[in-house]
Design a protein around this nucleic acid. Structure first.
Lengths: 345, 345
DNA sequence: TTGAAAGCGCTACCAC
DNA sequence: GTGGTAGCGCTTTCAA
């Protein structure tokens, strides 16, 4: 492996000049810059990450803390992970994976070892126990999700309140006077993942404003519980029922259940899916999809973190950024597959 | 941040002694070891990763190259990723995420920068273009997947040939004389991802051996194409049809389609799902599941890589390890949800 | 516009 | 069983 010393020798300059060519931290004459660049090319020189981190006190790595609890949909997480990794690379950084099963120890470890210059935490809970640790961690941290007390923290998430609102507006616009939100296992509601509450809050406010009656039926991911919710919705509804679900597992099963009940979306019912929408959902033709744009959230999270990492001052005051959902109406003839809305990656 | 110098001072020993206490690379008297450990504890000392990597030429990091192409199921990938990260930690290593969109450049980069001591490559293709680069990379590499020419490479994967065999044996055991394998989009067959061919090969061999007629119907993930395959199977079958699918997206839609056709698994048809099985599949009661055990594959991949990384000699000859699938029969009454088989994590 | 040289914090050799 | 010390390869002052 060639070192910057080798490059310097080949280019006939000092080692520091090589360094400055690489970092651009001081002006270099065109002539020597070209010579150095040629030498770098010729030797396929790559700066040693450890040495660089040691000398500069910057690892160019961001730590990504992923949830591995069974209650979160793996595909949705992966969507975040992939975009975060790709975005980090666009800004010349790498991503170190930390699982949340390491807990607070893990955060302290990667920061203490100076393996990374900043952290992104996914699946942040309403009363996340990592918050006190994060506050005195000494590196910038970006949360994906909004805890109850977000003062001084940097949080970014999809705007679930707005999504709830939009769902109800869609329903009302389609002429419904009542509807049901199906999904999220009961113990999530009103507790740990507060995007659930934000969504319901937005939906209920809009329902009140628009004079629509709205109910929330929690459901686990098994068929029986979803079916029960659907039945109860049909029973309660005068006129065409409207189903809203922000839960991937529910959306996976909903098409089959509706079909069993003889309900055809667009004719006998309205269906609105929120969030990462599974393939089975896309098999339904007449639907409205509220894309919460995970990839946009991820990109912004990375960019925010990088901004904080390069800021001279420690971040004052914190940030709160909400990404608005993207509404897509899908119409189609049976069997004709409309591609899912693609957010920029 | 305290350094090992601080620890040494506090414990009244030399810096090298601290290092040896941490690494265990030479015997230390009980007495001084305890003093040093106390000092480490008291200062919450953590070795600087960059400095350690620089001096020891070992980063304690393994690079994980993930596919981000749209044709692979994100949830399945995430299952590997999570287990790999967790397993790496068990052996005191971390995981650096590399996306395959960086291509060969990415491999050369992370190795060149000495960001990691070894690599795991996921979603390895039959004729993977990364192979020539890997061969002269200078660090151990473990493939998840088996390329056509695996000589000298270290490969590990689920035993798809055996899975195919088992599927047919299941069918035959249930009294079927014919069946259909539904899934994998056409362009994957016979081409890039050769686990497809391994599966079909095993299945066909068993079919011939057992006198079962077997057909493979490729399908894209849209409803129309899966429905067509199902119809064609029903038409061709004398007696009860058997459906086998190793494709997550197909398995997601299959329950609904079967129901539309009035087919009840266990009564009118047999259904065998292979691989990571989605929630919708679990809604079917009478099924056989062939778990390809992604988490076991992941664990073994990490352990193999670590073995190669600590080996003094560069790995001679390569490795080929196949993880046998786990067969689970599910019986149940409608609405009663049997938990999915959990591989050890 | 460039160079020399002093570290960054750790490991591992050599000496005792 | 322990300590001294020379680097690992880079960045970054200070000096020219």
């Amino acid at each position: 492996m060639p070192t910057s010393k080798d490059v310097a020798a080949l280019a006939g300059v000092s080692q520091s000049t090589v360094s400055y060519v690489m970092t651009g931290k001081r002006p270099i004459s065109e002539k020597t810059r070209l010579r150095v660049e040629a030498a770098i090319e010729q030797l396929t020189y790559r700066p040693n990450a450890g040495a660089r981190a040691l000398a500069s006190r910057k690892s160019q790595v961001i730590g990504l803390v992923i949830p591995i609890t069974p209650e979160v949909h793996l595909g949705s997480i992966m969507e975040f992970v992939a975009v975060i990794a790709a975005t980090a690379r666009r800004f010349d950084h790498d991503v170190l994976l930390v699982t949340d099963q390491e807990g607070n120890q893990g955060l302290e470890r990667v920061v203490g070892q100076q393996l990374c210059d900043g952290l992104i935490l996914m699946q942040v809970q309403a009363d996340d126990e990592r918050i006190p640790v994060v506050r005195k961690l000494g590196v910038p941290v970006v949360f994906i999700g909004i805890p109850n007390d977000s003062t001084g923290l940097n949080c970014i998430d999809a705007d679930f309140a707005r999504a709830g609102e939009l769902c109800v507006e869609e329903m009302a616009g389609a002429g419904h006077t009542n509807g049901v939100i199906i999904g999220w296992r009961p113990r999530l509601v009103g507790s740990r993942l507060n995007y659930v509450d934000r969504f319901l809050g937005g939906a209920n406010a809009a329902a009140e404003r628009l004079g629509v009656s709205l109910e929330h039926l929690p459901a686990t991911s098994d068929r029986r519980s979803i079916e029960a919710a659907v039945d109860s919705c049909i029973a309660a509804s005068q006129g065409m029922p409207a189903f809203v679900s922000p839960d991937v597992t529910v959306l996976e099963l909903l098409p089959r259940i509706l079909h069993e009940k003889g309900l055809e979306p667009g004719r006998d019912a309205s269906v609105i899916g929120v969030g990462p929408v599974p393939d089975t959902m896309l098999a339904l033709e007449e639907t409205t999809i509220l894309d919460i744009q995970p990839s946009l959230v991820s990109q912004h999270a990375v960019e925010l973190l990088l901004r904080l990492m390069t800021a001279d001052h420690p971040d004052a005051g914190g940030t709160l950024e909400l990404i608005p959902p993207l509404v897509t109406h899908r119409h189609g003839t049976a069997g004709h597959s409309v591609p899912a809305p693609q957010s920029a990656s």
